[in-house]
């Protein structure tokens, strides 16, 4: 078992943080890499990109939004309990280099994945402009943490309940008009990553996105995670999860992410029936 040593609820309990004991993974993990978790015997294998690692404590941290059957199951796990299975670190680490000014754009729980990448970029001496957003103020996560590692932080909410009223992409446009930016990193909903990539394209700004396709093994064995990048098939678990946003076929990715939509509903319902007989 992989024990949960710390658990926090964020965004009104819709987002959960788990710090999990896994010394071997913690020693190896680098920003941008992910783990695959399975809660129990009947559980599904769920990939989550690590939000943090602590080699000394021998722990890794994941932050996830409760969206379906499996994350609902994860939410029930308390400190002292744990995941039956976890593997990692998987995927390539994020591409970190000193380029000058970088813009880091995060939406929803994507901010959790963006955080260690942003920190890495900052530590390398880049000037970091961060733009993070959520639907509403209560759903915003890690804004203090992002603030601490950014030279400039812009916060947006779709409903205007906090910070800029509107989308991260609006702020991005303004920033790009005013600043010379060498690199953009975007992590969040697929649609957000797609729009960020479209906005940076005319400026010729290298744009990295972190993808989250459906996975099973995470070791290149099934091909379920394949994404089309520059017309070529890539396995996100081996070649990614980070890719050049200007080359990713986001529409196809969105369609592939919908593959089990019906089953997800069915599964959630079956689970609810069990909980509330």
């Amino acid at each position: 078992m992989f024990e949960i040593v710390r658990r926090e609820e964020m965004a009104k309990g819709t987002v959960i943080l788990n710090e999990i004991e896994a010394p071997r993974i913690a020693r190896k993990a680098e920003p941008g890499q992910f783990v695959i978790l399975k809660a129990n015997e009947t559980g599904e294998r769920i990939p989550l990109t690590m939000a943090d690692t602590d080699p000394e404590r021998g722990t890794i941290t994941v932050i996830y939004m409760v969206v379906g059957r499996s994350t609902a199951l994860f939410r029930e796990l308390r400190v002292g309990e744990g995941y039956q299975d976890m593997i990692g670190p998987l995927g390539r680490s994020a591409h970190l280099e000193r380029v000058g000014t970088v813009v880091c754009v995060g939406g929803g729980t994507g901010v959790a994945v963006l955080y260690p990448i942003t920190r890495g970029l900052k530590q390398l001496g880049n000037r970091v402009i961060s733009i993070i957003g959520a639907r509403t103020k209560d759903l915003l996560i890690l804004d203090d943490e992002m603030k601490a590692i950014s030279d400039e932080l812009h916060v947006c909410t779709d409903d205007g309940s906090y910070g800029h009223h509107g989308f991260v992409t609006d702020v991005l446009k303004t920033v790009l008009e005013e600043e010379v930016v060498e690199l953009a990193v975007a992590v969040g909903p697929v649609l957000m990553m797609k729009f960020v990539s479209e906005i940076t394209r005319p400026y010729n700004i290298k744009t990295l996105v972190s993808l989250n396709p459906i996975m099973i093994d995470g070791t290149g064995m099934c091909g379920g995670c394949r994404v089309s990048v520059g017309g070529e098939n890539k396995f996100a678990c081996i070649d990614g999860p980070e890719f050049d946003g200007h080359k990713v076929d986001f529409d196809q990715l969105m369609q592939r992410l919908q593959a089990y939509r019906q089953e997800e509903i069915q599964s959630l319902e079956a689970h609810r029936c069990k909980l509330e007989p």
Binding site: T42, G43, E44, R45, R69, S70, L73, I216, Y260, E263, E264, Q266, S267, A270, H271
Partner: peptide, 12 residues
């Protein structure tokens, strides 16, 4: 993943 026993098993 025993998906043939979905939804008893979670994998579809």
């Amino acid at each position: 993943m025993k998906a043939y026993r979905f939804p008893e098993y979670d994998t579809p």
